[in-house]
Every structure is written in C-alpha cells, then in structure tokens.
Design a protein around this nucleic acid. Structure first.
Lengths: 341, 341
DNA sequence: TTTTTTTGAGCAATCGATTGCATATTTAAA
DNA sequence: TTTAAATATGCAATCGATTGCTCAAAAAAA
C-alpha cells in the first residue's frame, strides 16, 4: 500500500466518486462543487498524492516543460538569463530543461531534436556562434511550437526575440574611449552570421565616424572571440607594428586575452592602451586594472524572454505573433579605459 | 495527414501488422523476425516517425530523464561536471534536466520535489553549501530512486558518491606554500556541514603539523567563501595586525577577494604574501599574478558520476549498492605562490 | 505421418489523467 | 404544477507505447 503512489483513482475510491470528478476538482473546474473540491483536496493531502505529470502530459499534450537552449551554461550572461527564465517559469509551474550546444552547429541540431522528442511545450534559444543554417529552428516553427530567441538571434527566422541594443552599447563604449582621448581603437569582432557582433561593429564604426575618425580596417580583428583568440589578435596587431591606443572587444574573454598580451609586452593599461570589453563577465572586475565593459542586463532579459514566451504560448496562431523587445545595455566604466592625467 | 505525428499504429496499419509488433520491432525484440524489423524501420523512416517518449514513459515507468541538481550552473566546476554527465547520458539516450538550488536550502527542497514530480529516473546532486538537513534527499532514497552525490556530499546519507581527495589537494597545496618559505599561512574555510571544506581544513592542518608549524586558530577565517567574504576575511586579518605570509583559500573566489585587498594595501603578491586557491576557476589564470590553485578534475568527475549513476540504475536493490569514488586533484602552481628570490 | 518445439505475431489490458457527452438532481422560470 | 435552465457528477474513450499471454504456422523430432 505504501508501495504504489496514490492516483486520482485512489482518491476517487476513498471518496466514492469517480476519477473524472477528482481530476476536475484538482484542476479547480467550476463544474465541481466547492464541497467536493474541499474533500478531494483533503484526501489528496492525506494520501500524499502527487500528480503524475507524465500521464497528464500524454493526455493533454502539454508537458509543462520548456526547453532552453544556450551555447554554454557556463557563462555568466547565459546562466543569468536562464535564472531569469526559471524564475518566471517556476511561478507558472513549468520546468526548464537546459541544454547546451557548445557552439557546435551539429550538436545544436541534435539538441533541438532531443528537446522536441522530450515533448517540450516550447523552446527558448540563443543561437550558437557558428550556426549558419537555421533549418532546425524552422522545424520548430513548422510544428507550431512556440520559439523565442534571445541575444543571439538571426534575421532569417521570423520569431519573437529579445535582445539588447548592441549597437547602442558599442556606440557608447567607443564614444567613451574617444572621449578619453583614443584615436586608434582596435576592434575585436566575429565574422559570423549572428547579429550581435555585426551590430556592435556598426556601433563602433558609427561612433568613429561621428567623431570624424576614419575607420581603419587594419584595426579590425576577426576571430572566434575566446581568450586565446584575443591573445592572437593582440599579438597580430603588435607584431604588424600597427599603432593603436585602445582595444574595444565585442567579448570580455577576448579583451582579457589582449590584457594578458599587453602585460607581457610591458604595455601599460590604461596609460598607454585603454581597454573595453562587452558582456560584464564577473572576472572583468577582478582584473588589474578592472576592465570597462557593457552590462547586458541578463536577468531582465531572462524575465522578459520568459514573459514573451508565455504570452506566445497562450496564443492560437503562434506564427503571426512575433514580437521584438530591445533592452538598453549599460556601459560600466572601470579603470582600464580611464584617462591617466 | 501532415498534421498529427506518426505513431506506431500508423506504421502498423501501413504494414498490415499490429502496433505491438511494431513496438517490439522498434525495440529490437528477438521475438520479431529480421524481415519484419527491416520493414518497420523503413516505414518508420518513411513516415518520419518520432517515438513519443511521454507515452513510453507512462507505460514503462521510465522517463529517460535524469535530474541534475547543482548549487549553481554558473561555476566552471559545476558546468564542467554537468558537461561530463551529459556526455555519458546522451550516449545512453537519456536527457538531463539541470536545476539549480542557488545554495538556498529551501529552493533545494522545492527543486528535488520538482524533479521527482517530473518523474526523473534518478537524480545526481551536489549539496548546497547551507544545507544542514537532508530529509529531502532521504525521500529520494526512500522512493527507491537512484541518487548519486558528487563533490558536495554528506556523511548523513548512505549513497553512492564521487569526490576528489580534498584532503590531499589541501595538503599538497599547503606543503607547497611551506616549501616556498611560508610559515604563517592564513586559511579561508567555511563552517558548514559540507565535507569538502572540513577535509581541506584537515589537509591544511596536517601539512602544517608535518612541517612542525603550529596551527594558529587566529589564522583560520570562516566565511561563506564568496569574493566579498574573501575581502572581508583579508581585511580582518590585516586590521587585527596578525602577521601572515600566505593565504590558502578553500575557494578561488575568496582568494580573489584577498588578492584585491592585498593590492589595495600595496602588499605585493607573491613577494610579501603568497596565495593559493582551490577550484581552478578560469579567472585564476587571468589575474596578475595568476593564482595557484587546485584543479578538481571536473569533466572526469562528471563522467565517473554518470557512470556510477547508470550502474546504479541497472541494479535491483538501489540501496545496498553504495559506492564511493575518490579522484585525485591536481595542484596547479602559478606565479602567486612562487618564491621570489 | 504424428507429435513436440520453436518462431513470429496478435489480442487486449495497462500506465494515470483528461475531456466530450450524457444523466441525474436542483433550482428557477413560466 | 409543469417546463426550462443550471448544477454536479458519472461514463467511457483517449493519449501512444508496452507487455503478459495466447495462438497459429513452420520446423524439428519421433
């Protein structure tokens, strides 16, 4: 008797009513009398009844699971977004399956499939940096399953999305560096299809133009934007003897690499070269000097994304309701970019 | 027709056989002829059949989901372990639900409940730092659901567990500091019930004793081991005027805080004070100077944990089979702890 | 050729909750 | 008092896959 878990049938039996009534009572169906509801609830508690979500999912077609696909959970930005999503989802009694693509397009496809197979009610995703084909996301849409993208989005998909204003963040950062006296600002970017780096590059270029500083292609370094890539890019610039007085990297990791290389070359930051990154990864505040960066409003982004998602879930025609939210990032000025008098 | 997804019944109908046969064919049951299997597989592909895991889970009682509970996914150590777990799980066609307790005992209890309700086939967990009551884990065991703990374990639970040899790691680190000439080594630890900090403390103490250096309680700072706590602890020591020539912190975050405070007090690392942390968080290699730390073998730990878990899953009597694996950590020596001549 | 085994499949119940369609009982309106 | 409307519950099918049991046909043994 302790053995098998209690089901609605057990409750029904004890109360001499049917399982349907119990089910309706538990779901607070208006067709059930208050009295019966009370009794059912009481008996449910007494029998330590735990609803079987799997049975419910099978019948109702709703798994109450939402799949969250991120490039890597091991990044402050992504894990914070996830946290924001979780907060909202849990309130609504949804569970979150986090899965990681590890920036690998192949793995991303598999993962989408796996989530679909797990019968999630919808998917929230941020696209891997190297993804150039979006068929697997189209597949989600074709099935009429709600999809919301955040941060790493693409124009090739007509879906709801939540992003920060990367252009603005980059523009402000570049402007700040210019105000600190910089004229030869190196920019680290990524050549991929993903929106964010393009936008940041645009912000960088426009800020320069607006200050009447020519955009010098020699100062723009493309890479995969990891720490190692930042090192390589910095070495490149130094080796080529290209003069520069600042680095604005679209990734905190890459700017960290630059800082290391500058240190090794005994180039002083910020007096000789000023630095700014993007992302506000925690380590940027640990370094010596602490690095100026752009905060991406990760927790709000998670919450907004989840809210967008659940609105979508409520609607009938998933496709027609695409919605784009843009959050303002915040420039966090630290020592690495400040003029030394 | 495109509408509803194909089921085994659709396959059965097309082939003029029954769903049971299809089911068995798909599961490679020996009672089905090779020929039939081939046909079924072909038709399945043709109809783009995707098994409904939910239906299968309901009937078989196996959800093919495994719950992973970590204090926070946003830590290199934990996310690496998760990655190791995922690797193994995915190979075996299991999906992983990651959930975070955020070091909050209350949230941890809720999360365990949520996982249980999601009908995971088992749980892999690392206990929150502030958890002092383990009833929710006992509940898992009582239900006969496999549970494996890693890293943050407790003696109050009789379960399979995978840990590193924290004692060894701490002993070696302390010994290393002593060899570099340190005699007054501050230790940052956490007062909680969790094993790891106790073991590290023990390693620290024994290394001192073995070198005939008295253990001075004034040098041992207890805290929650975050960056801020490390700052506070370091300020404490300095303010009290307690002489010291090294800090060995059981957490990389806390040692980072110490480094900041030392920097602010113009105390030079490593020439005046040497530092070592624990965990090999990526940022420890970014700092100036890079920080000596202990690598916790996170990916192997994840894999071993998953392997232990799946072995457990195979067994009948879950309880009797507890198994403890201890991995050797590795001391990573960097500039922060090296003797300056 | 008859009997026994082996092999390949079908039948039908089952997992637990949900839900459209009755039906019985009250209550309100005519 | 009769009829219509509202309220509370039951019945039974359903979601899709799994599985114990039964059975027919084919192969092997007697």
């Amino acid at each position: 008797m302790k053995k098998g878990k209690a089901t609605i049938h057990d409750i029904a039996e004890k109360l001499n009513i049917t399982a349907s009534t119990v089910s309706r009572a538990l779901n607070d169906n208006p067709r059930i009398s208050e009295n019966t509801k009370k009794q059912v609830l009481k008996m449910a508690k007494q029998l330590n009844y735990q609803p079987n979500h799997i049975a419910s999912a099978l019948r109702s077609g709703k798994s109450k699971l939402i799949g969250v696909l991120v490039p890597t959970a091991n990044r402050n930005f992504f894990s914070s977004v996830v946290r924001g999503i979780e907060d909202i989802a849990n309130e609504l009694d949804y569970k979150v399956i986090i899965s990681q693509s590890y920036e690998d397009p192949e793995k991303e496809i598999q993962t989408v499939d796996a989530l679909l197979n797990a019968r999630v009610d919808g998917i929230i995703a941020s696209i891997g940096k190297n993804t150039e084909n979006f068929e697997h996301f189209k597949k989600i849409l074709d099935k009429g399953i709600p999809l919301v993208l955040f941060d790493r989005i693409t124009n090739e998909l007509e879906v709801s999305q939540v992003v920060i204003d990367d252009y603005y963040g980059a523009y402000e950062t570049t402007k700040h560096l210019i105000e600190q006296g910089c004229k030869r600002i190196v920019h680290f970017t990524s050549p991929k299809k993903i929106n964010i780096y393009r936008e940041r590059l645009r912000g960088y270029e426009d800020a320069l133009k607006d200050a009447n500083i020519p955009v010098d292609p020699a100062l723009i370094e493309e890479s995969n934007m990891q720490l190692e890539d930042g090192r390589t890019s910095m070495e490149n610039i130094i080796t080529k003897g290209i003069p520069f007085d600042a680095v604005f990297s679209s990734s905190d990791y890459a700017v960290m690499g630059a800082l290391q290389v500058l240190r090794e070359h005994k180039i002083s930051v910020p007096s000789q070269v000023k630095l700014a990154g993007f992302g506000n990864e925690p380590f940027t505040s640990f370094t010596a000097p602490p690095i100026t960066t752009v905060d991406q409003k990760s927790i709000p982004m998670g919450r907004v994304t989840a809210e967008t998602f659940f609105e979508l879930l409520k609607l009938e025609d998933k496709k027609s309701a695409t919605h784009k939210t843009v959050l303002k990032p915040e420039l966090i000025i630290r020592e690495s970019s400040l003029k030394t008098n």
